[in-house]
Amino acid sequence: MTGSVFPVGHYNGARDAEQAVRVGWSRHRLDADAFAVWVLAHGVPEVGKGNWTVADVVAHCTDTGVDAPGKHLEKLADSGLIAVVEDDPASAAQFAHRHRMDVLFVGLGNAPEQLEGHAVGIPGLGTAAVLDPECYELWQWGSVAPTLWHSCEVRATVVAEPAARPDPDAALTEILGDLRFLLAHGCAYLDVVG
């Protein structure tokens, strides 16, 4: 298994000795090692909008003492808790058609330290992340879209030259980068369509 890793599901807290993650209408219970792999699939903030691969997840899992991270990755992928997007447009488009995004946190207004930055977090507790305008647009409107692909279509239409045909495939790379940033900072989560 290779490619970019995206976690799917919304964390629902501890249940007995396991952690619960909801995907669609299903709740999955994960042991400590499987949960650690799922958490590390979100990426780390230092990556920004960059690629977060299977190899990155395995390396970080190994560094933190998780046993058999590759095996856990495969099981999580089989159960729909992790999506692996291969480095080709067809795989990315298929992923975007099958998944939707929902947001966590609330908008806190413009970030004083960054002229075009938008802060999101929890009022009274602080800022979780400062988003650039494109990332903020996905965060603000992405949960309204029924799929990630719809977000790509909207972005492609907005940025297209007046006489040009919108290209959602070109917007997809940007959307996936923005999504990576949001996931790594805990500002959003992915779910399945339907």
Rank of each mutant, 00 (worst) to 15 (best):
E86V: 08
G70H: 11
D87C: 04
G80E: 00
A92R: 15
L73S: 03
G126C: 04
G65Q: 03
A129K: 06
G124W: 04
A92Y: 05
G70P: 13
H118Y: 13
P112H: 12
A111V: 03
T64R: 13
D88H: 12
G65F: 05
G80H: 06
M101F: 00
N110S: 10
R98Q: 15
T62D: 15
P69D: 07
D88N: 14
H118A: 14
V84Y: 02
Q114F: 10
P69E: 01
V85E: 05
P89H: 04
D102W: 03
V103G: 04
D88T: 04
L81S: 02
D63C: 12
R98D: 15
S79V: 11
A68T: 14
A77F: 06
A111G: 00
V120F: 05
G107R: 04
E74C: 07
V66Q: 02
A119F: 01
V66H: 04
L104V: 14
D78H: 09
E74T: 12
L108F: 07
L115Q: 10
D63F: 05
L81Q: 02
L108Q: 07
E113Q: 08
C61S: 06
P123I: 00
V103E: 10
A90W: 04
A77Q: 14
G80Q: 07
G109M: 10
L115C: 05
M101N: 05
P123M: 00
L76K: 07
V120A: 08
D88R: 10
A92D: 01
H72W: 10
T127P: 10
L81N: 06
L108T: 06
S91V: 11
N110Q: 13
S91E: 11
L108H: 09
D87N: 15
N110K: 14
G109H: 07
M101Q: 04
L108W: 12
D78L: 12
D78P: 08
A83R: 02
E116K: 07
D132Q: 09
I122P: 08
P89Q: 11
A128Q: 13
E74I: 06
D102F: 05
V120N: 02
D67K: 14
A111R: 03
P112Q: 05
L125S: 12
Q114S: 15
D67L: 08
I82F: 02
L76R: 09
L73V: 01
L108I: 01
K71D: 13
V85L: 12
L73A: 03
N110C: 12
V130F: 07
P89C: 00
Q94W: 02
F95H: 05
N110I: 03
T62G: 09
H118T: 12
D102Y: 05
G70E: 15
A111E: 13
D67F: 08
F105Q: 08
V85K: 06
F105K: 10
P112W: 06
P123W: 01
G80T: 08
A93W: 13
